[in-house]
Amino acid sequence: MNDTGPAVTALLQSWQDGNRAALDQIVDQLYAQLRAVAGQQLNAERPGHTLAATALVHEAYLRLQANAKAKAHFVDRHHFLAIASRAMRCILVDYARGRKRLKRDGGQQVTLEEFTAVTNSTHDLLAINTALEKLAALDPRKVQLLELISFAGATYAEAAAILDISEATVHRDLKFARAWLKNELNGEGA
């Protein structure tokens, strides 16, 4: 494996200390991890094929931690989740944008299968992203919560610990945030 553990650990700290640019670098690193995981996925004995975003994050975390331990660093899982959730959102949204562009520019190779579905889901994630941005302006904590739960697969308990709120609040916030998001996407924004 490539030697990204300590670097990411340092970047995490740096981002935590207020260095916004560190996020971009972390995203790059994480993306490399994701590629590696996915590449390995091709040649790994594994039943089914359901590598979801949250599973990717989980695998990436395990790798980082394995590397970090070797260097006597410890990447705190909460710490990691906090950042990975944001990074995952960036990655997926960038990816969706890229593909939408490709489609629009008629990057016509051989299309062996229908692309209709692809465009729909792209639209979905991009629309969701816009809605999330709007929500962030109103209530940033709820966006962080959605990122943790949906993009990084954090448990409710983890999310509660990271955001320093009770689990009951996690439930309430999620319920409201999801309803709001759904409503926003229905074009009936509050």
């Binding site: 997926l92 969706a96 979905d124 998001l181 509050a190």
Partner: peptide, 23 residues
């Protein structure tokens, strides 16, 4: 509207799953 939307779910998680799989 919000209460109505509350009974529907999954939109975010599905979009994420679809995108990740493609990626």
């Amino acid at each position: 509207d919000l209460i109505q939307s509350d009974s529907e779910s999954g939109v975010l998680d599905q979009a994420i799953a679809a995108e990740a799989r493609q990626m």
